[in-house]
Design a protein around this nucleic acid. Structure first.
Lengths: 254, 254
DNA sequence: CTAGATTTGTTCGTATGTATC
DNA sequence: TGATACATACGAACAAATCTA
């Protein structure tokens, strides 16, 4: 009962009321993804408002990623799981004026990746192990071009994303994927002219191979320990890299 | 005159294009919170579209928490930092069909709270310490009513929220606040008829007092260690509590 | 305190494109 | 192929909020 309505003496927008009503209705009826919301006409009658207002409310739900709106017969708003990409984008907006630095990202990563590895150990399937080995294979050859180097870094990150998706803890999984996304952006945008860091790649490759062994042996505590060392190593190399970049772009920081 | 070569394969909605354009424009111009976006009329001219379409785009930005829209002279859309509550709400939507369990929440909390405490140690101010002590004071008296008991649990959580706000790592801070919000909901909704757990409250009180001492002494590693023990203790009591509740509601789970 | 100016907010009517049957 | 149902988009008119003189 303790709603925002207590805080807002001012007029609450009609469409926002509808959004809240629909959300409550979905939660109360335990609606599942794929079920359809009433169409525009029914909603207009239900809430005694115009087409445009209903449309604005549906638009709001769509922006939040809660529904997708299909056109055509039997179209309309259908309930959806919020896709990761949408949630990720919205959290990025939150961080827009407070961009996390490289070291901050790596600090968080060092905290959570070991736990993700441990939780994923009993849940990983044979197919997952095959996928992980395929990703490792991508990183075996020595990269010729800058693009190949970036592709390898992304394959390394995908290794961690797959583990995050399998860890079984929705929040931990989200954070893991989000953090790896942030690092991917660092790799792609900020450091497209990044030095080779051959040592770094080799260390990662070795850790990933050992991690696969630990996963296959279902040895969670070894996976945790390996991942922790891996992250400490990555943190170290990143610090080194940022130091080098700082040398190059003295005064051009932002 | 239906020339297919003129048809653009994109089915991206006009308003979404406008949203993306505005976002790019904001990022490129390094716009700060408080600055105003062009008003509806100018945007209509800029993007050669109708008022309704512009409004839909602005609404989208508002739902994402990126702008607030005021009416009247000098009104319009002004750039905002996304408030925590908005980002939190959107992440909750993401988790709606994958509700984290109590143990999952506490597992994440155990990972991050010690680091938050350590990072906050050098950054906490005298005023913050006063606030923390005030929160501890709330938990000293023995609660008479259920409501008092809940208020004390919330004061305990606010202790952690304040630390999270001061830890200086935006992502860690967000996760800390989010996790404590989730626990607050557990306290308020699921366990309003929760048993007294006197031992739990006393343990928390003791830990919080010791934490304040460590913070005052600027002893980050002790703060980290204390918080870790605190979280392990809380995790244990929560497991005990969930066991009790499970006894009561056998078969009534969902 | 009132009146007017400015800007957003809401609604109606209409037209068009598109997906499904 | 055509009919239908729905979203998308436009424009005009009016309502409401808010600032300023």
């Amino acid at each position: 009962m303790n709603d925002k309505s207590l805080q807002i003496p001012k007029r609450i927008k009609r469409s926002d009321q509808i959004v809240e009503s629909v959300k409550r209705w979905v939660a109360l009826n335990r609606m599942e993804p794929g079920e359809r919301l009433p169409n525009e006409r029914e909603l207009m009658q239900q809430f005694e408002c115009s087409k445009g207002t209903v449309r604005e409310a549906l638009k709001s739900l769509e922006v939040q990623g809660l529904v997708t709106i299909r056109t055509g017969p039997n179209g309309g708003a259908v309930l959806e799981r919020v896709p990761f990409e949408k949630a990720s984008e919205l959290l990025r907006n939150y961080l827009h004026f407070d961009q996390p630095s490289g070291p901050e990202i790596y600090a968080l990563r060092t905290l959570i990746e070991p736990e993700i590895a441990a939780l994923a150990t009993p849940r990983i399937t044979e197919e997952d192990l095959d996928s992980l080995e395929a990703l490792v294979k991508c990183c075996e050859m020595t990269p010729e071009t800058l693009e190949e180097r970036i592709d390898q870094r992304i394959a390394e990150l995908d290794f961690h994303v797959l583990l995050a998706q399998r860890c079984g803890n929705a929040m931990l999984s989200f954070i893991g994927r989000f953090v790896n996304d942030m690092i991917r952006d660092l790799v792609i945008f900020k450091k497209s002219a990044l030095p080779e860091q051959r040592e770094f790649s080799c260390a990662n490759l070795a850790y990933h191979r050992q991690l696969i062994d630990a996963l296959r042996a279902r040895d969670a505590s070894r996976a945790r320990q390996l991942m922790h060392e891996h992250m400490k190593s990555a943190e170290h190399f990143n610090r080194e890299l940022e130091g080098q970049l700082h040398q190059h772009f003295l005064g051009a920081t932002r």
